[in-house]
Amino acid sequence: MEIDLQGIINPTLLTFKTVGVSLVLFLAVGVPIAYLLSFKKLRFRWFLDTFVTLPLIFPPIAVGFFLLLLLGKNGFIGSFFARFDISFIFTFNGLVIAGFVAGLPLMVKPLQSAIELFPMSIKEASYMSGKGAFYTLVFIILPSIKKSLFACLIIASTRAMGEVGITLMLGGNIIGKTDTMSLAIYNAVFDGEHELALVLSGVLVIISLIFFVGLHFLQKER
């Protein structure tokens, strides 16, 4: 049986794109959330903490369903974005949201504890050097814990890459449009194309191994 090359390349590229955008979001949104959560006295900390951690313990399909309700055209958030012609359901945006929500707790929680463990006196020394909290975070704290930061990014990205449940609900598994690699494997098996499923799984294994090796070296150097 002949394997359709497009059937491999399209899902792979789509997955790379999704993970790439999620990666930027992890840095842009995950890092500030981890920093905020490191303040024990923050108001509404419990709310933020719950919001971030929930996808870790809640079934992905259920999370996907709630997001569908929220982000749908008539949903609380979706109706707002619909005015600007931005939609999340059955689009690439939905895939990114799914990967991001699934990976966020794995990005935020370990990074939060790394920031909390960073010595108070070094932060204070920076403040007394005339520098503000944000400057200290960017130029002292994050560079000092960069290995933890990279490790968090790798773990969160692998989670985003393998995401199925939320992706299925938000993306809709439209072939050629929102079928990421994991979903493409499911589709292939469903259609009886076992060779295609095998090749796609093989590609996922190789990518995961690359991530794993990266993680291993980060831990070894520590």
């Binding site: 010595p119 006196s121 070094i122 020394a125 007394m128 000092s144």
Partner: peptide, 19 residues
């Protein structure tokens, strides 16, 4: 604010910027 006071502070545990 702590940033605006003209102080130098030396900690017992040095607190140098490790990076």
């Amino acid at each position: 604010a702590v940033q605006k006071r003209g102080i130098g502070f030396v900690f017992q545990d040095y607190a140098l910027f490790p990076n």
